[in-house]
């Protein structure tokens, strides 16, 4: 039987902390960003030779992918199969939301029209969003779909961010530096679950294979290069997503093989007159995501929270 330590009284002084002055500069008030050093760089000059409109568009592409996907992951709160998965999925959603905040703040800054992260997130209509279709799909709270999409998304984004570590834009480079560590964990988490589901029970194998077939048609868009990206590659800011294809395929093939799953042979979803998510042309799902995401903010124009 252990005795109560002398110092333990201090550890339990929750009442005392309640009466402490609210410290607005406590970094935990903005928990989930963790980008303190990046905040200072958001106002950094646009790199020489770069069109600010292209950079703003690129930051929106990278930012919208994770804003919208984070929103989908947050739907899992209080719905996960186990508490460990509650914590992990919320953690992944928080990491991605943190990336989105910095990228949208940078997009707003270089655009120069006075739009901040919240104006961009809450007051744009769907045609102004530049995320890929993969991010906006509903997984209908099917855990197999959840981890199948996470495997594809995190493998692709990790490959992108690894190539963006040396981006000429300091904010993109800083997001990449932090994001590589985060996405490495996300990909590992997803791969472990794909192994368990693929090589678990007959039922989980069937569900995992079906989930791959659900996610696969959205893969093609990830490697299409937009005109803004093409120009920014030349300026040393962006990476050509087409260059990540081999790496992404290699990783996915390796995980699927080990999980005893079959790579689907399905054609990618088509575009409308050559336009897709990067050009603001979305699936029917995004309108519903934004209706929910923006509902409270739009009901209170001019309010601060």
């Amino acid at each position: 039987m252990s005795s109560i330590h002398e110092g333990e009284h201090d550890a339990t002084n929750a009442y005392q902390s309640l009466s402490e002055t609210t410290a607005q500069d406590d970094p935990r008030w903005a928990f989930g960003t963790g980008f303190a050093d990046v905040e200072a760089e958001i106002s950094a000059a646009v790199p020489a030779g770069v069109d600010p409109a292209d950079l703003a568009a690129y930051c929106q592409m990278l930012g919208d992918d994770v804003l919208v996907y984070s929103q989908r992951l947050a739907e899992w709160v209080a719905n996960a199969p186990e508490l460990e998965e509650e914590v992990a999925l919320a953690n992944i959603a928080l990491d991605l939301l943190g990336q989105a905040r910095v990228l949208l703040a940078r997009a707003g800054h270089v655009e120069g029209a006075g739009r901040d992260e919240d104006v961009l997130a809450y007051l744009r209509d769907q045609a102004e969003f530049r995320n890929v279709a993969l991010a906006e799909q509903s997984d209908d709270l099917d855990f197999a779909r959840c981890v199948a999409r996470l495997l594809v998304f995190s493998t692709w984004r990790l490959a992108l961010l690894q190539r963006l570590l040396g981006s000429a834009d300091p904010v993109v480079a800083a997001v990449a530096a932090k994001g590589v560590k985060e996405l490495t964990y996300h990909r590992d988490y997803a791969a472990r679950w794909i192994l368990r589901l693929g090589d678990g029970t007959a039922e989980s194998h069937r569900r995992a294979q079906a989930a791959l077939e659900w996610v696969w048609p959205y893969l093609g868009e990830l490697f299409r290069t937009s005109v803004e990206e093409r120009r920014l590659v030349a300026a040393g800011v962006a990476v050509d997503p087409a260059d990540t294809r081999d790496e992404v395929d290699g990783v996915l093939d390796q995980v699927l093989r080990q999980a005893t799953l079959t790579r689907p042979d399905l054609r990618p979803t088509g575009t409308v007159g050559g336009r897709g998510g990067r050009q603001g042309l979305h699936t029917e799902r995004l309108g519903l995501v934004l209706a929910e995401l923006q509902s409270v903010a739009r009901a209170h124009p001019g309010a601060t929270w």
Partner: peptide, 8 residues
């Protein structure tokens, strides 16, 4: 209603 509130 804000991204900061969402993260918190």
């Amino acid at each position: 209603p804000s991204l900061r509130r969402k993260a918190i």
